[in-house]
Amino acid sequence: MSESLLSPVLDDDGAPFWRYAAEGELRIQACADCGELRFPPRPCCPHCHSFASEWRKMSGRGRVWSYVVPHPPLLPAYAAQAPYNAIVVELAEAPRIRLVGHLVSGPHEPLDSVPPDRIRIGARVQVVFTEVDGVSVPRWVLERS
């Protein structure tokens, strides 16, 4: 049996996120009544309890808030790409919104394309999108200074 990489779970609440990702856009759900951004997507605003929502386009810029380099790889399908990273990115225009992904050297580069010693908390990053098992997923590259 061949193992594959983890793929996102597509549900009704998150469907617009993945549709926009397929178009190369990073959008975050916002309450259409109070304006608060929320992630992960959900049907009701945790602030004002409204069920009205919209999807706001983000710049795709952020900072590395946290990261980990798993040793040894926890899932067999990732073993060939070790040492890889998993990062948490705080969005520039929405610091309370944090997304998990991988820091890579380019949109179609492997998960191990950035050496672990180059990853820094606070490093500026920009989103890129890569297709994984038919779904466009956000990954991150270091912002060019």
Rank of each mutant, 00 (worst) to 15 (best):
W65N: 15
L91I: 09
H71M: 14
A21E: 05
G134P: 11
A94S: 11
E90F: 06
S53L: 03
R120C: 09
W140A: 05
V132P: 01
G62T: 06
E131F: 06
C45T: 04
L10R: 12
A52M: 02
C44I: 15
A21R: 00
D112H: 13
R63G: 12
Y67P: 03
R19Q: 12
R118K: 14
P107M: 01
C45V: 11
L26H: 10
R124S: 12
A22H: 00
L142W: 01
R139D: 14
R56I: 12
V125C: 08
W55A: 01
G35W: 01
V89C: 03
F51L: 15
K57C: 04
M58R: 04
S7A: 15
G35A: 10
Y20P: 00
M58L: 13
P95L: 07
A86P: 02
S50N: 06
E23T: 01
S2M: 15
E36Q: 12
C34N: 11
S66F: 03
P95T: 04
P95H: 08
A77H: 07
L91E: 06
V104E: 06
H49K: 10
L74Q: 14
V114S: 04
R120K: 11
C31W: 02
A77N: 01
A77G: 07
V89K: 00
S53N: 15
V114M: 01
V9S: 14
P40E: 14
V114Q: 00
T130S: 10
I28T: 05
S59Q: 05
Q29G: 01
R61P: 04
L26Q: 02
H71E: 08
S59K: 06
D33Y: 03
A92N: 07
V135C: 09
P16E: 06
P40L: 11
P70R: 09
L75A: 15
P107A: 14
G101L: 07
V137E: 13
S145Q: 11
P73R: 11
E25T: 02
V114E: 03
S7M: 08
I87G: 02
A32H: 09
V137M: 13
E90P: 07
D11Y: 00
A21N: 01
S113Y: 02
R63V: 15
I97R: 03
P72M: 06
P76S: 15
G62C: 05
R120F: 13
F17Q: 00
D33P: 07
V69A: 04
I121T: 12
G122Q: 12
R118N: 09
Q126L: 12
Y67Q: 02
P116V: 12
N85H: 02
N85D: 09
F39T: 07
V125H: 06
